[in-house]
Design a protein around this nucleic acid. Structure first.
Lengths: 151, 151
DNA sequence: CGGACTTACATGGTATCTCATGGGAAATCA
DNA sequence: TGATTTCCCATGAGATACCATGTAAGTCCG
């Protein structure tokens, strides 16, 4: 199964359009789809994207029965409430909804970041900050583990 | 299978009419239907809607036999009792029944919220409150899990 | 080994169409 | 007949489909 990997920075035009990187487009088009699902990340300052097949998985995760004791699935609920199916135009671009741009703090350029089954869309500056913090956490974890004789 | 996803806010006119968002309309029309089923949510301050096919699922959930020991399905019973089939007009609008408007506390605008197999109709202000609480629950869950060393 | 050509991808602009919304006429019910 | 509901049409804004350009990389040919 093809996955979303790598980072690509593309330009956002005046209408909020942005080219989805060709490798990412290939991932969803390989599944016969011509659109991506986008939604604001519930936990980070970015937008997140995936194929519609992943949305179907979320739908299945929603309480489908009519039991009054049905468990909630907060994450699925917030994503389904905020997601949008954004089709590709003829050239592989999508239109970023206005509220997603606001949530992610996007302006001129959008960084598409592969995360495996999903991808994220960041403002390049905010992405750099996030990655700096990430590397610090890794360093801290290595330091914490070094006492145990790890490599 | 197409699902109800996303949130769309439309205006309620003086006659109680409101445009069903085109993507939602497409979901039910793809199944050959030209109406939605609406009912007051048994658990929340909103109206809920779905295709008539889902009502059929509810009917199947009702006890069908004449046995005195037939099990009840309270949720299905209350939904079937209060649901109404509301057809689209030529432009894809429906008329919200007066009592549903009252139950959901609707006034000028209606927020259609996708929930996968069903959708909900909220007053935009009440929806914002509900989502704020939802995000807090998610944040609390993440905080509770963070001690396990996850990224 | 170098240069021209081709292809694929990103980007910008324009035209067209769909959708949300408002108003009014016709029909139905009491 | 009066009130209420249903159907139809008009309109403007916003979204989408289409077309054209630029550019970089890769390939084929000389």
């Amino acid at each position: 199964m093809k996955a979303f990997i790598g980072t690509f920075v593309n330009k956002i035009d005046a209408k909020g359009r942005v080219s989805v990187p060709a490798p990412f487009r290939a991932v969803v088009q390989a599944k016969g789809m011509n659109a991506v699902a986008l939604y604001p990340s519930p936990t980070e300052a970015c937008a997140e994207g995936c194929g519609m097949d992943r949305i179907d998985t979320l739908v299945d995760a929603m309480p489908d029965d009519f039991s009054p004791i049905a468990r909630n699935n907060d994450m699925a609920e917030i994503i389904l409430a905020s997601a949008r199916e954004t089709p590709f135009d003829a050239d592989g671009r999508v239109v970023l909804p206005e509220d997603f741009i606001a949530h992610a703090g996007l302006s001129e350029r959008a960084a598409f970041v592969g995360k495996g089954r999903v991808f994220q869309i960041w403002d390049p500056d905010k992405l750099a900050e996030s990655h700096a913090a990430l590397k610090q956490r890794i360093a801290a974890q290595r330091k914490a583990a070094s006492g145990k004789g790890g490599a």
